[in-house]
Simulated scan of single mutants.
Amino acid sequence: MATAEQLKALVKSYADGDEAQFFSIAMQVAAHAARQGHARLAQELRALVDQAKARGGQVAPRRVEPPTPLAQPRGELSGLLSVSYPDTRLSEMVLQPGVRDRLDRILREHKQSHKLREHGLRPRHRVLLVGPPGSGKTMTAAALAGEMQIPLFTIVLDGLITKMMGETAAKLRLVFDAIRSTRGVYLFDEFDAIGGQRNAPNDVGEIRRVLNSFLQFLEQDQSDSLIIAATNHPELLDHALFRRFDDVLEYDLPAGELIERTILAKLGTFAPEDLDWKSLGKSAKGLGYAELARACDDSIKEAILDDRSSVTTQSLLRAFDERRAARRS
């Protein structure tokens, strides 16, 4: 059987998330068991370690998170927040390498936040996403919620912004109270409606007070939630906002290789080997990820109804044109 020191070292390596050390100590326990005459136990321990390594298993620390209630926002919050429980993953998205690396860093910091807090540090929890429509900002919020297995709360701007002086700021306080009490990913989409420049020509006092309140609430937030703001118009945002966020991620519409990867990922087994990528790349230019995905779905549906096992270049070109026409209508 394992010694007391081995047991303590095993638990410590698990708590630290040190995979190599955990497996090393487990093998030491197996060797010790063999020397004590417990050959069967030693063999089973070695087999378990080998299986875990073959699966790519990772030793990760566990922490007790605040409970996440599976319920819709109630009372006044019901008009301010909409909730969903995404199963989207980052692996399903086609992202620029730099953006993907920074998202992975955010996830890593949240999954091992206890390590950071032991040194007086906090994970990135205030993220600003900027880029044109269809570049993947909203899907990123869903993917982060899915990866972290927490709900995605989207702030309903129609319910938040009112004409009554002082009422919007009061509602914003309710939202930040929810951020503190219920762990989740909180998405402020079309964020320029709140974060517009305070010296803009069309500025009114109410919007200026709302922005000041938002900045104050953002600075004071000490929750375990992840706050995401997304905008198609970063040039409209007040300059003070940018330094209040832990990360600012810039998105672009897919181009070149990213168009090809997006199409192949969406088509899956319906992708033939003879697609005309030059024509497809030219036709798909300017379309967002969501538009490309819907166009691929349309082409797959056509193939299924025509009893074909794959799509054609022509069906994809038609689908891209239809998506572009739908945008103009």
Results as ranks from 00 to 15, higher is better:
Met1Tyr: 04
Pro201Ser: 08
Val130Ser: 15
Gly205Asn: 10
Asp321Ile: 05
His110Gln: 15
Ala265Leu: 09
Ile259Leu: 12
Asp192Ala: 07
Met165Gln: 04
Val210Trp: 11
Cys296Tyr: 01
Phe191Pro: 11
Arg180Gly: 12
Met1Asp: 12
Lys8Arg: 13
Ser223Ile: 08
Arg74Ile: 09
Asp203Ser: 15
Gly17Ile: 11
Thr168Met: 05
Gly57Thr: 13
Phe23His: 12
Ala52Trp: 01
Gln197Ile: 00
Leu249Ala: 03
Pro254Met: 04
Lys301Val: 12
Glu302Pro: 01
Ala142Asn: 10
Arg40Val: 14
Ala271Gly: 08
Gly205Arg: 11
His114Glu: 15
Arg209Gly: 09
Asp203Tyr: 10
Ile179Trp: 02
Thr138Arg: 08
Lys285Phe: 01
Asp276Val: 07
Thr312Ala: 05
Arg209Phe: 09
Gln58Phe: 07
Val29Ile: 15
Ala31Cys: 02
Lys115Ser: 10
Trp277Ala: 09
Thr269Glu: 14
Glu76Ala: 14
Arg198His: 12
Arg126Ile: 09
Asp18Ile: 06
Asp307Pro: 01
Ala71Gly: 04
Arg117His: 12
Val29Pro: 03
Asp177Cys: 06
Leu7Thr: 05
Val59Ile: 15
Ala145Gly: 07
Asp321Phe: 08
Asp177Thr: 13
Glu219Pro: 05
Ala170Gly: 04
Ala143Ser: 13
Ala284Arg: 02
Thr162Asp: 04
Thr231His: 09
Leu218Met: 14
Phe153Gln: 07
Arg328Pro: 00
Pro86Cys: 11
Leu121Lys: 14
Gln51Leu: 13
Asp189Ala: 10
Val204Arg: 14
Gly120Ser: 10
Glu260Ser: 05
Ala143Tyr: 06
Leu77Gly: 10
Ile263Ser: 01
Val185Leu: 11
Lys163Cys: 00
Asp246Asn: 14
Ala141Thr: 06
Gly195Ile: 06
Ile155Gln: 00
Asp177Tyr: 02
Gly288Tyr: 02
Phe176Arg: 11
Pro66Tyr: 04
His125Asp: 11
His233Val: 10
Thr140Ala: 02
Gln197Leu: 05
Leu287Gln: 01
Ala178Ile: 00
Ile259Asn: 02
Asp50Ser: 12
Leu128Glu: 08
Leu81His: 09
Val64Cys: 06
Glu322Gly: 05
Ala240Ser: 13
Asp104Asn: 10
Ala200Arg: 11
Tyr289Arg: 15
Phe176Cys: 11
Leu77Asn: 13
Lys12Asn: 04
Arg308Thr: 00
Ala39Val: 14
Met93Asp: 09
Ser310Cys: 07
Ala295Arg: 02
Phe245Trp: 04
Ala200Phe: 03
Ala295Asp: 00
Asn232Trp: 13
Arg209Cys: 02
Gln6Cys: 04
Leu237Arg: 07
Leu41Ser: 13
Arg55Cys: 13
Ala2Ser: 10
Arg35Thr: 13
Gly57Pro: 04
Arg74Cys: 11
Glu250Lys: 13
Leu10Arg: 01
Asp252Leu: 09
Arg117Ser: 12
Leu237Ala: 06
Ala33Pro: 04
Ala142Ser: 15
Asp224Arg: 13
His233Thr: 10
Ala303Ile: 07
